[in-house]
Amino acid sequence: MKQWIAFWSILVKDARCYYLKPPNISWALIFPLAWTGMFFIKSGTGLDSVMTLLPGVVSLSILFGTTSLLAVAVTFEKRGRSFERLLLAPIPLEVLMLAKTSGAILFGIANAFVPLAIAACFADLSHVAWAATVPAVVLIAVASAFLALFIAVSVSEVFEAQTFSNFFRFPMIFLCGLFFPLAKLPVFLRPLSYLLPVTYGADILHEAIHTAGTMPLALDFGMLCGFCVVLFALSLRNIRRRWIL
């Protein structure tokens, strides 16, 4: 029970200090709108392309929503030494880091539903397989949040967190099959795509939204879960090695 009180308090505190700040809420709204608009205009195929673009925009919204704030927030708290307060609390490191990432996960999930809501105004979403879409959104958010945590633990300064985040995020726009099928990528880049968690999340969404997935759903979900476990374990290991010196 005591651990849950701590968990909930960390989540609420982070939501208030970071995720529910007006600039971040506006970022959550404007960012998906800008991406949707950009690809919509670029495709030139009118409203027909909404369903084709939706999986990529949803994935990107989650990826940028989770990584932008979490990596910076954790690094900021580490620099200001307020993170020490959390490390001194009598709660297991695993619970602590899950609490720390929960805010980002929820923020990422909320981000995902912005483009979905917009799309609902222009396209018929009745054929979307929600049973696959919703878990995919959650798993992409979890994997992205753990990626952000991994980034935060690997750097010391806030600006490094931003730079390092972009090092992962921007290639993902092109390498994860969000807007261009993986088959169209140069052969030498394709192995890289399969090393990125969003590739599998986007594939589930392509399948669930416009039946254009390229891999079995079980493989996609399995890989996403695997990425979540590995990234979280790596982050914990790095915290123990780098922060609890």
């Binding site: 651990q3 308090s9 009598p90």
Partner: peptide
């Protein structure tokens, strides 16, 4: 209050 919550205080 936040610091108290970290120690499981209701």
């Amino acid at each position: 209050c936040f610091c108290g919550a970290l120690y499981g205080m209701r």
